[in-house]
């Protein structure tokens, strides 16, 4: 056992960090800066991060779940509004189905509550749909289809818009086995967990900075135990979530599919609970400011709400954990 990052993984982490530090959003107003958003999208595109799950010569992914998690975490930390979640999950579906590559940028279509891939014909939302031309849907029999996207829909996440999927003709691109579907679920839970961990880190950084600056009663508020302990608890949540995430990320390609799903579900449940706590702490520490649109705290919270809902948050993932323990059907 040696769960340290390899030299390449450390380099990837640093590269993603540099891009985010340069082009991530540091204020709510940055979100409206189209030039910044375009530059970030270009940086993500040219880095090849959206192709991490493209097939190699033998059909395996170019990079493992660990690399995907590294990038997703940094993008989450910097509130990246360049698509990664959607295109990566679409790429993985096509790889598992041995389908040809999409021509345009593609994402995935989920049920209206985002808890599962949508079947063709049911009401569906394409997540993380900026600049996407199509979304993949999965029929109950494992048939994978691509559907063109219609109009933009609202999103709880200000960094990742959604699109409606019209009930029109879809093109069959391949099919998935049950094991493929589990492998994909493990990746989807892992990537959203990594996104949550990153957002938690960003939100805590924001709160810590503020607590070191804001003065009340003649002192920085971070010197008060009542505030300091909220921040300490937030860090503890992040470290726990990160420990679970690393195992899940490794498990995507190294564990048997049912075990990979269970590991990822376990990490997602832990991180989803923690993300709410950390983001709410961030708002609380900012006081009145934290409840205004101009404070980034709610942008983090909103991003974690979306990442939580994709493939389910605490409840569905505790149910997956119990099912793996032979205790399904009780939650």
């Amino acid at each position: 056992m040696d769960v340290r990052y390899t030299a390449e993984q450390r380099a990837l982490c640093q590269a993603a960090r540099r891009v985010i530090d340069r082009l991530g959003s540091r204020a709510v107003a940055d979100l409206a800066d189209e030039r910044r958003a375009a530059a970030l999208d270009e940086a993500v595109e040219s880095s090849g991060w959206r192709e991490l799950r493209a097939p190699d010569d033998r059909g395996g992914p170019i990079a493992s779940g660990v690399e995907v998690a590294i990038v997703a975490e940094e993008l989450g930390r910097g509130l990246a509004d360049a698509p990664f979640l959607g295109p990566t999950l679409a790429m993985e579906l096509r790889r598992l189905a041995r389908a040809s590559q999409a021509v345009d940028r593609e994402t995935v279509g989920l049920r209206r509550n985002l808890a599962a891939l949508a079947s063709p014909g049911e009401p569906a939302l394409a997540i993380d749909a900026r600049d996407a031309g199509s979304a993949l849907l999965l029929a109950a029999d494992g048939t994978l289809v691509a559907a063109g996207l219609h109009e933009k829909a609202g999103s709880i996440d200000l960094t990742r818009p959604m699109a409606l999927i019209p009930n029109t003709e879809a093109v069959t691109v391949g099919s998935l086995t049950e094991a493929d579907r589990q492998r994909w679920t493990a990746l989807a839970l892992t990537i959203t967990t990594a996104d949550l961990v990153g957002s938690m880190r960003g939100a805590l950084d924001l709160a810590v900075t503020y607590a070191g600056q804001r003065v009340q009663y003649g002192k920085q508020i971070g010197s008060f135990q009542a505030v300091a302990h909220l921040l300490a608890d937030a860090l503890v949540q992040i470290e726990g979530a990160r420990a679970a995430l690393l195992y899940a990320a490794w498990g995507v390609d190294s564990l048997a599919p049912p075990d990979a799903v269970a590991a990822a579900a376990s990490a997602k449940a832990y991180a989803a609970r923690g993300a709410r706590l950390v983001c709410e702490t961030c708002i609380q520490v900012h006081g009145g400011i934290g409840n205004t649109w101009e404070c980034l705290a709610h942008v983090y919270l909103r991003r974690t709400l979306l990442a939580t809902d994709v493939l389910g948050g605490v409840g569905p993932n505790l149910a997956r954990v119990l099912e793996h323990a032979g205790l399904g059907g009780h939650l």
Binding site: A243, A244, Y247, Y270, A325, H330
Partner: peptide, 26 residues
């Protein structure tokens, strides 16, 4: 059942944290 699920999730997390700390010690 929910309490058991959290106990599984949390105890697994700690086992993975231990793996990480042991590796960092290398």
């Amino acid at each position: 059942f929910r309490q058991l699920a959290w106990a599984i999730v949390e105890s697994d997390m700690l086992a993975h944290l231990v793996s990480r700390r042991l590796s960092e010690r290398l």
